[in-house]
Computed example of a mutant assay.
Amino acid sequence: MTQEGKLACVTGGTGFMASVLIKQLLEKGYAVNTTVRDPEKSEKLSHLKELQNLGPLKIFQADLRDEGSFDDAVAGCDYVFYVAAPVNLNTDDPENELIKPAVQGILNVMKSCLKAKSVERFVLTSSAASVSLKKLRENGLLLDEESWSDMDFLTAEKPPTWGYGVSKMLTEREASRFAQENNINLLTIIPPLSIGPAPVARVVPGIGMALSLLTGEQKDLQGCLRLKDK
């Protein structure tokens, strides 16, 4: 099924997941706007230039920290896919490098959607880190729509990559609040490890964690989304 005449915005076009999404949208007949922080870094945009051969793809400069910077990219769009997010898992300052930028970023993009008045649906790409980071005392972990990671555990004990999980939880909650208050059609997806072929050449952290299931290398599990008591 094609979607000719429909315009979608995909934030974070230099990312692994965003590049796959852009390719699929173009192949289905959508016109696509995508955003990047620094259009001057041509080495990070080479895959986007190639994807322009598949269909109408425009590249906009925007930064999650700057309110209003997404206005042009979102204007006239039928759908907005929020894929860009801070992902510095090894930061020494999760509060200022992960959590605050993530929360402010989602609000900035959603405010641009309100200005556009054309967005039919806002799709938030979250992470399994928002639902599965908790200390297990027995085997088995059943997750559903009501599940959240353990905020008290993450902020008190600060296990590896704790700030990433907190940033994803707070991003979801702020997005849900803002969507309800402003009548935005919000859909949230919770992807686990991201692996597989993609137009972008960068390797994502999830590949190392996935390979650890085969190699048994514990160091690759630092960012694992399931923590257990010893």
Rank of each mutant, 00 (worst) to 15 (best):
K6H: 09
T11W: 12
G15V: 03
F16E: 01
M17H: 08
A18Q: 08
A18F: 14
S19L: 14
L21N: 00
K23C: 06
K23Y: 11
K23R: 12
L26D: 01
K28N: 10
T35A: 06
T35P: 00
R37P: 00
D38K: 09
D38L: 04
S42R: 13
E50A: 12
L51S: 02
K58I: 09
K58C: 02
I59F: 14
Q61M: 04
L64E: 05
S69G: 07
D71N: 13
D72L: 15
A73C: 06
V74K: 10
V74C: 07
Y79I: 05
P86R: 06
L89Q: 14
D92G: 07
P94L: 09
E95T: 03
I99F: 13
G105Q: 03
I106V: 14
N108I: 06
K111L: 06
S112L: 03
C113M: 15
R121S: 07
V123H: 05
L124K: 11
A128I: 11
A129H: 15
L136R: 13
E138A: 15
W148G: 02
S149C: 04
F153C: 08
E157C: 04
K158P: 00
P159T: 03
P159R: 09
G163D: 01
G163F: 08
V166M: 08
S167L: 07
E172V: 12
S176Q: 13
Q180Y: 14
Q180P: 00
I184T: 11
N185C: 09
T188I: 15
L193H: 12
G196E: 10
G196Q: 05
G196N: 03
L213W: 14
L214A: 13
G216E: 07
E217P: 00
D220H: 15
Q222L: 12
L225S: 12
R226S: 11
K228E: 08
D229M: 08
